[in-house]
């Protein structure tokens, strides 16, 4: 219990705020890494997922590959990438992109696939092009599930972004690593609490967005 108290007073200690190693700066770094990783992964995974969901083609191969990527331990991948790219933020960022990819892909194709077939057929019957079908029917109807994928990916990445500090001076992971070996457990727990808090805030925000994306009953999605 006292360790928790120590960690909380570590966080509230003004000396740990401000400057390049301050908590505020570390939080910003941590968020930037998280957003960058999810955004980069989304750039690839979302279009690919929508394509698979819409056409039904290549599903088996891509899903199996994405599943395999899930099994890759992020720290191992980070070390491999680090040996190839050197230290800095590039290797951790790529490792986090690989971490986010499967969840985003799964959300995208599952969302598009799950769009009500009746609605899709009706849209096709009124003469919508394939592009219109995807953008005006399938994506809006699947938005809930697609956002669910983004939410899951973000949660994984924000927690794992602590690994960025493994080979770069970045993010909240710095408190974990430096506290661990020097037995400054208040600093370490403080870092963990900050990451957990950040994860909760992000998840709540995305959950709200997800709820808002659900089409209200009786209203035709435009």
């Amino acid at each position: 219990m006292s360790l928790f108290g120590d960690a909380l007073s570590w966080i509230t200690d003004g000396a740990h705020w401000g400057g390049p190693t301050g908590i505020d700066h570390r939080i910003v770094q941590h968020l930037l890494v998280t957003f960058a990783a999810v955004a980069l992964a989304a750039l690839l995974a979302l279009p690919l997922g929508v394509l698979i969901g819409h056409t039904g083609r290549g599903r088996l191969v891509v899903v199996a590959l994405a599943g395999a990527v899930r099994a890759v331990p992020t720290l191992g991948l980070l070390t491999l990438l680090g040996l190839a790219l050197g230290i800095g933020i590039e290797a951790p960022l790529l490792a986090l992109v690989a971490l986010a990819f499967p969840s985003l892909l799964a959300g995208a194709y599952a969302g598009v696939e799950a769009a009500d077939r009746g609605a899709v057929d009706a849209a096709r019957a009124v003469g919508m092009s394939e592009w219109q079908l995807v953008t005006r029917v399938e994506i809006p109807l699947g938005a809930d599930v697609i956002l669910g994928g983004i939410r899951a990916a973000t949660l994984q990445v924000v927690a794992t972004a602590t690994l960025a500090a493994y080979i770069s001076d970045t993010g909240l992971g710095r408190y974990l690593f430096s506290g661990l070996k020097s037995r400054q457990y208040d600093e370490m727990l403080a870092g963990a609490l900050l990451v957990a808090g950040l994860a909760l805030v992000l998840d709540l925000a995305l959950a709200t967005l997800q709820r808002a994306s659900r089409p209200t009953t009786g209203k035709v999605p435009s």
């Binding site: 080979i167 710095r174 690593f177």
Partner: peptide, 22 residues
Amino acid sequence: SFTPIEDGGGPLTVKALEDDDI
């Protein structure tokens, strides 16, 4: 100045030296 490399003087540290990152 300082940059963290958490592998205890292992291969990542050597790589960083060779790359002149540290």
